[in-house]
Design a protein around this nucleic acid. Structure first.
Lengths: 337, 337
DNA sequence: CTGAAAGCGCTTACAG
DNA sequence: CTGAAAGCGCTTACAG
């Protein structure tokens, strides 16, 4: 079976159209000046032969690969389920700019794979996600002069393309929602200090409370996870027993907090309001369903794909800040209804 | 800033080592015969210059791209969360064979993107997931003689590489577990007819019941999703009110079924046992936690990566069937404990 | 063992 | 407007 027909080359097209390969190239790319008649003949021949130019050859002469590298964040990075929507959107948007996405395995903080892909000329640019505020990869790419776009702001944001979701705005929305439900004693379960993302989310709460004229929140810091969330909630109620509204910087923390409160026999929703961040699939399933903030991962991916086109033109970098959406569910709505 | 140093080429290495570029190539690739001394000199020069051969150039001359295409299944394909582990493992294993993964957006059943990547010589092979039993892509690639490996068996399995998880064995395990807990009236919430994967999972239940000498299950078919699962469960209890054990071919269906049963005031676990398939993250969180079957997605990915190496050698295709693991949780354990 | 040369499939000045 | 030629960075017979 297996046809494995020789893929036709520019030479075949030239022969079929009765012109030189240079003319075929110009006709097909619309570069240089070619008579309408020739263009037509060449197009016909190309169509008939199903000709598509070799990317390797184009890349070699043009010095561009039309490929963008994306290092998969270490497993579990920002929660499995989001990767799907993110990749789809990014691949789609990049594709519309004629760019393919090349996947590779990113080591925790290593620049090794990045360097390799650059040197082997496999990619023209990179997309970085799960960036730290101080990120070795950012400095490396900046120094190499390789275009890239990050998901998340960094210490060098003004020097590279980036897309981010306004986390502070997300928790501020949550806070205003809770305040409108009558809450005034707030707690926050935050990430350890130094996490830019986590601190921005914390800021959203404190800022919103301040402008509402409410007292500042009690803050407990915890690593991510359900069990840590449970413990953090216990701690929070110990240091601030009057708390009635808890904003968590991530859903898992909220799920832990929720489990703790429920197991203490306190009603979640009416007595104690709990909110998370990220709208993980679980959030809508737990009892009671969790109020949370949804990040527009699809939009992040497509903007990243878009922006990559610009990055490759060498225009000066810009950032895009996207708004998250508050998803109100029973974990903050129980009682007063 | 931006160094953008000219990436060094084979010519630079030759100059630095004082040999011809042909010799550099042979020395670095270990092909042809080169004196040990020359090899050493060349290696040193290459290291010093940080030389890495251009993949485009190698691809052009060798006619191979060392890239493998993977079309992202349509959003939500086999449930977001699994994509992460799958991609990680696949990218890792492929990487060890010197292969990069190129992502693209697969249209539902279209071969268009596949044809394009072949013609443009972007990839040497493909990985297909979410394959249908009759899959146009499989026929297309077979006819083109392009190597590929599928996740899931197809009607042409003996002609291509494949990796699959033994779904029938998974639900058979579930069934035996439930029978050992004293259940004898089984229900199955399955996918619509024609889904090979779904039908295999259904088969696992019927087969196990038969060999246990128990009556066949009542079967309700439903599209995937939590809400459909809820409705399917209602339907199941209507047509077979005596049912006490329900095996669902996917977790989301099980979550819907569980929600329905719980909201009817029936105790899940003791009175009504419910099991799912896939061990999605949510499964361990719901109340009660869901008994389910875990697919070794990581293993699937790495075997796929492995096997791709073979596929590119042109050796004759083989398939690998991986065993899933039953994860027992409270949704099937309540009462009798 | 080593080098010169051809060639992979394109694009792009450069002549005509 | 069109074609011949050079060249992108490699690998691989083919001579020496």
């Amino acid at each position: 079976m297996a046809h494995r027909e020789r893929r036709s080359t520019i030479r075949d097209v030239g022969r079929a159209a009765g012109v030189s390969i240079g003319t075929v190239s110009k006709a097909l790319n619309g570069s240089g000046s070619v008579s309408d008649d020739t263009v037509r003949k060449v197009r016909e021949a190309a169509d008939m032969l199903g000709y598509r130019p070799s990317k390797a050859a184009q890349g070699l002469v043009g010095g561009r690969s039309f490929q963008v590298g994306y290092g998969l964040p270490v497993l579990g990075g920002w929660g499995n389920p989001t990767l799907d929507a993110f990749l789809h959107a990014m691949v789609g948007a990049a594709g519309e700019h004629g760019l393919d996405i090349v996947l590779f395995k990113a080591e925790p903080h290593g620049v090794g794979p990045y360097e390799d892909l650059i040197k082997r000329r496999v990619v023209d640019a990179f997309v970085l996600s799960d960036t730290d505020y101080e990120d070795a990869r950012v400095d490396f790419l900046l120094e190499k002069g390789v275009p890239f776009a990050t998901f998340g702001r960094t210490a060098r944001s003004e020097r590279h393309y980036w897309v981010d979701v306004d986390g502070a705005e997300g928790t501020a929305q949550t806070t205003r929602h809770l305040a409108s439900r009558g809450h005034s004693r707030f707690g926050v379960i935050a990430w350890p200090e130094g996490s830019e993302t986590g601190d921005l989310r914390l800021t959203g709460v404190t800022g919103a409370l301040r402008s509402l004229g409410l007292p500042p929140p009690s803050v407990v810091r915890s690593t991510n996870g359900i069990e840590p969330g449970r413990q953090a909630m216990a701690e929070l109620l110990r240091i601030a027993p009057a708390t009635t509204a808890v904003v968590c910087v991530q859903d898992e923390l909220a799920l832990g907090a929720l489990a703790y409160v429920r197991s203490s026999g306190i009603d979640v929703g009416s007595v104690m309001a709990i909110a998370g961040f990220d709208d993980t699939p679980t959030a809508s399933i737990v009892d009671p369903p969790l109020t949370t903030v949804r990040q527009p991962f699809g939009a992040v991916g497509s903007v990243l794909g878009e922006i990559l086109g610009e990055a490759l033109e060498g225009s000066s970098p810009r950032g895009v800040l996207l708004e998250p959406t508050l998803i109100v569910r029973a974990s903050t709505e129980g009682g007063s209804s």
